[in-house]
C-alpha cells in the first residue's frame, strides 16, 4: 500500500487509528481532545488523537508520539515467538500500514527494534496465508481463519484464493482443448445450435 496516496481510502482509514501523544506546547481551544469541558490544551497534557493529526503536529514539534500498544514490548515478544497465532485484526486492522507510517515519521530508537519483528511477522504470516488459500478447508474454517487477519492480509488471502481458482480453471480448459483436438469438431460452425434443453 502506498501510504502517501492522497486518494487511497485504505490510507485514510488507516490514519484514523488513535495514537497516544503528549503535548509539547500549549494550544488554545481544542482542550476537549484531552477531556470533555476542558478549554485549552496545556504543555504536558496526555491525550489520544488520530494518527493523521498526530503526525502533522509531530512534524511541527507540537506533540510527542508514544509508541502504540500494538508495538509494545510484550506484543513484540509474542509476535517474535509465533506470529501466526496472533489475532492481528483485534490489535490493529491496519497494522502494517501504521507500522510503515510510524517508521517514516518517528526517528525513535525503539522503532529500529520493531520494524524487523513486523517484517518477519509479515513473511511468516504470508506463508500461512498461502498455505490456507491452497488448502481445501471448509468454508467455516476459512471464516474463522480470516478473523485472525488484518486488512491487508485479508485482501492477500482473497487474491490468493482467486488466482488459484483461475489457475485451476485455466489448466482444466487447456486439457479439455487438447482432448478436443482429437474429436470431430464439425459442430463448431458459427451459429450452430449444439444443444437444446
Amino acid at each position: 500500500m502506498d501510504t502517501e496516496d492522497y486518494w487511497s481510502i485504505d490510507t485514510i482509514l488507516a490514519e484514523e487509528q488513535k495514537i497516544k501523544c503528549s503535548m509539547l506546547t500549549s494550544i488554545h481551544e481544542y482542550g476537549h481532545l484531552c477531556e470533555a469541558g476542558k478549554e485549552n490544551l496545556e504543555e504536558g497534557d496526555k491525550l489520544e488523537m488520530p494518527l493523521w493529526l498526530a503526525k502533522s503536529l509531530y512534524s511541527e514539534e507540537k506533540v510527542d508520539i508514544a509508541i502504540p500498544k500494538f508495538f509494545s514490548t510484550s506484543f513484540r515478544e509474542t509476535l517474535a515467538a509465533d506470529s501466526t497465532i496472533v489475532l492481528l485484526k483485534d490489535k490493529c486492522n491496519y497494522f502494517y500500514e501504521n507500522a510503515t507510517i510510524l517508521s517514516e515519521i518517528l526517528k525513535s530508537e525503539k522503532l529500529k527494534e520493531i520494524i524487523p519483528v513486523v517484517h518477519k511477522a509479515f513473511v511468516e504470516r504470508m506463508r500461512m496465508i498461502s498455505d490456507y488459500a491452497e488448502g481445501e478447508s471448509e468454508v467455516q474454517n476459512n471464516n474463522m481463519f480470516i478473523r485472525r487477519l488484518c486488512h491487508i492480509e485479508k485482501e492477500l488471502f482473497v487474491h490468493n484464493k482467486q488466482r488459484i481458482k483461475e489457475t485451476v480453471n485455466f489448466k482444466q480448459q487447456h486439457s479439455v482443448q487438447e482432448n478436443y483436438g482429437a474429436q470431430d469438431n464439425s459442430m463448431r460452425k458459427p451459429g450452430k445450435r449444439v444443444r437444446h434443453n
Partner: peptide, 28 residues
Amino acid sequence: KPEISASALIDHYKLERSKRVLYAYHDE
C-alpha cells in the same frame, strides 16, 4: 501568540483532512 497559531494550525489540518475524505469518497 504561539498557542493561537498552533490552534489555527489544527483548524487547517482538520479542514484539509475533511476535504481529502470528501474528495476520496466522491472519487470512489
